[in-house]
Amino acid sequence: MRRLVSVFVILLLPFLAPAMEAEQLYYALRTKVLSVKDYTADVKVTLDVNYMKIPPLEGKLYYKVPDKIRMVRKDGISILPKKNMSLSLGNLIPAGKVSVLDAGTATLQGKTLRVLKVIPEDDKSGIILSKIWIDEANLLALHTETTTQNDGTINMDLTFGKYIKQSLPDKVTITMDIKEYKLPKGITMDYSEVPTTAGPKKPQGDSKGNIIINYSNYVVNKGVDDKVFEEK
């Protein structure tokens, strides 16, 4: 019955826009996002972090509500931002009771978008404030800006294409704070271009990093075995 309602809401949405109240819009979006119970997809993860030199990692991504996510690469290593921070949109849209404020409109990707400010009422999610840029016509979040308790501000840009019908993005770009990385030279015994003093010093300290995930070949709501998420 609930599912039926949500489908109904989704179908009706374009007709209701733009008269929808901020809160209404938020819950409609959340319902839509959470309607994807699980999926698998082929992904290409590009880590654009100043201290990382990693080629794009291709693998299979498994997702299951509410926050299970895992990338698998055969015999390989996968690197994703930590679960508690983000990655799935489901995670960045606060669950439970929230206060929603209308923050007007903004233009992004050539579209005029509704901007909502969402403040969760409990702090279990670790989210203090989430700003969401919503394409009201398609009921899609194209950009989020989430301020967390411990992990700074996480920005997410979503690009939709082939899988727009399932509200699943083709590409997600996550911009987040990256902590400094350093190991003592005495341990790593680096080979450095001699002399080491030559060349500009790399920026040190905390900085921003981009994680770009390209999705393809989604399989949605066909069930994902929980075993997939177990750490080996």
């Binding site: 895992r70 990338m71 690469r73 290593i77 690197i79 931002p81 930590k82 987040m176 350093k182």
Partner: peptide
């Protein structure tokens, strides 16, 4: 320093 931010698996 890496695992503070990232999940490194595999």
């Amino acid at each position: 320093d890496v695992t503070d931010t990232f999940n490194v698996q595999g």
